[in-house]
Design a protein around this nucleic acid. Structure first.
Length: 455
RNA sequence: GUGGUUGUAGCUCAGUUGGUUAGAGCGCCUGAUUGUGGUUCAGGAGGUCGUCGGUUCGAGACCGAUCUUCCACCCCA
């Protein structure tokens, strides 16, 4: 025993075989849909230069970045006066890199660097971990996977509609229907802020509105009055209470606030979506949806689980000028991000994982001694060549132990080889589930297992 | 970042106002069964009570610090 128990860093986790299989199931499902919709995969490094990351997520986001200490003598460029100027100043001297905070900003960098090779509109997907120095709790980790799909170089609202269809296909294939896709538009919020006399204070307005379902309409009222809202406030807040259809909500909004880019975008979005003829859409126009990430400028999306308390499981929106900060102007993009870890938690809580996710062998070859093991290795090769997942017990152990192993790993069939079997060239094949066993030639065994597989 | 919460066997948890040798269930190992798992029976291993320090004749229990877990806020996937 070592002197202290080893542990992972706070907010990070190991994934055992069962968890990894379940995670793969989600990733495979999402990936299949991404490809079906015409997205191409890319990957980017875990670390980015801090100059790429800093300033894209607001002040709070900057604090949540994991910074990487410079290699070698990281203090060699620093003096005592640097130290006295405080950590913000010193940071630039000792750290130039950081772990990525999301997949969208690294993607923006990728586009700018590869703009001449990329054919627009560019549809990319990316499934990789991201890191945030957040305080961990349930559904919130310091290392977690995002599954992003983005379309850049196209302003058309069809992209938003297509992403909405994609979201439905992903959750449908995961057999989860407890979600709702909320949609809103930043411009709708901005105009609302102006109508209540809060022009120039759009951000604080949004942040307060976003709290509606948490602190209630009354407190939101008070906070907005403090900000300086005028007597139009009551009418505007009444919009958030509407339980009508999406189209009617939009009309109510237009009556009160008037038409703008947001209303035009959304009505076009609903029109295009209707053309797809999909049934049972779970889309809700939520005029109070704000979302924090500062780079969103148009439509915004959020998928919430209605039957599990875990926050949003997918989020996204349109950003008109994300590549602008890297020197490429006029490239609009829209994207969504599936939160693998939260979707995992939801499926786990709802018991929605298929039961046959195990990756263990379909056949174990058990043997009594060295001679039968050697013989078994030849049998194993034949079994594997026929496409059946199989393994042989590596040690010369008691047969009981080998059966126990098959039972624990839920291997459905055990092929037993001993001196009798070698002599007659027939093997005992035991069905672990039923407990029955019969003697068969190798050919018969392969046929039987192949049949079980297709059944 | 603010406030709270949790930690005892591999896992889930008991453990009385501080008192001698820290328990249970499940799991694990061995045997009953030297060519057969999952059931049954018998036996066994496994704990510096998160860590460090303090109070006390005596601490798993009380106090402090620290780490960890979970929760609310903040923010978000």
């Amino acid at each position: 025993m070592s002197s202290s128990k080893p542990t992972q860093p706070k907010g990070t986790r190991d994934f055992g075989p069962e968890q990894a299989a379940k995670r793969n199931y989600i990733v495979d499902t999402i990936k299949t849909q991404f490809i079906r919709y015409g997205f191409s995969q890319i990957e980017t490094p875990a670390m980015e230069n801090l100059s790429v990351l800093t300033g894209k997520y607001g002040d709070e986001g900057d604090q949540l970045l994991f910074k990487i200490l410079n290699s070698g003598d990281f203090l060699k460029n620093s003096t005592e006066s640097d130290f006295n100027l405080g950590s913000d100043h010193l940071l630039k001297k000792v750290a130039e890199k950081g772990l990525r905070y999301d997949l969208t900003v690294p993607f923006a960098r990728f586009i700018v660097q590869n703009q001449h090779q990329i054919t627009m509109p560019f549809k990319r997907f990316q499934i990789q971990p991201v890191w945030r120095a957040d305080k961990p709790q349930k559904g919130r980790y310091r290392e977690f996977y995002q599954c992003d799909a983005d379309i850049v170089g196209s302003n058309d609202l069809w992209n938003e509609a297509e992403l909405s269809l994609l979201i439905h296909d992903v959750f449908e294939n995961l057999n989860y229907d407890g979600f709702v896709l909320k949609i809103n538009h930043r411009e709708l919020l901005n105009e609302m802020a102006r109508v209540v006399g809060l022009a120039g204070k759009e951000m604080p307005f949004c942040i307060t509105i976003d709290k509606l379902d948490k602190i209630g309409a009354e407190k939101v009222n008070v906070e907005l009055e403090k900000l300086g809202a005028n007597d139009q406030l009551q009418k505007v807040i009444s919009l958030f209470d509407l339980k009508t259809s999406n189209e009617e909500k939009l009309n109510s909004y237009i009556e009160l606030v008037g038409e703008n880019r947001g209303t035009e975008d959304l009505s076009q979005y609903f029109k295009l979506l209707a053309a797809a003829n999909r049934k049972n859409m779970k889309i809700e126009l939520d005029l109070s949806l704000a979302r924090g990430l500062t780079y969103y400028t148009g439509t915004i999306f959020e998928v919430k689980a209605t039957d599990v308390t875990i926050g949003s499981i997918t989020g996204g929106g349109r950003y008109d000028n994300l590549t602008g900060v890297f020197g490429l102007k006029g490239t609009s993009g829209v994207g969504i991000s599936f939160g693998l870890d939260r979707i995992y938690d939801v499926l786990e809580e709802k018991d929605l994982f298929p039961s046959d996710l195990g990756q263990s062998s379909e056949l174990l070859i058990a043997h009594f001694d060295e001679t039968s093991k050697i013989h078994g290795i030849g049998v194993l090769a034949a079994v594997r060549n026929s496409g059946i997942r199989a393994e042989i017990f590596p040690d010369n152990a008691k047969i009981k132990k080998q059966f126990n192993y098959a039972d624990k790993k839920r291997i459905p069939f055990v092929l037993v080889i001993g001196s009798e079997e070698i002599k007659t060239q027939t093997y005992a094949l035991k069905d672990m589930k039923s407990g029955t066993q019969e003697s068969m030639s190798l050919e018969e065994i392969l046929n039987k297992l192949a049949k079980m597989k297709t059944a």
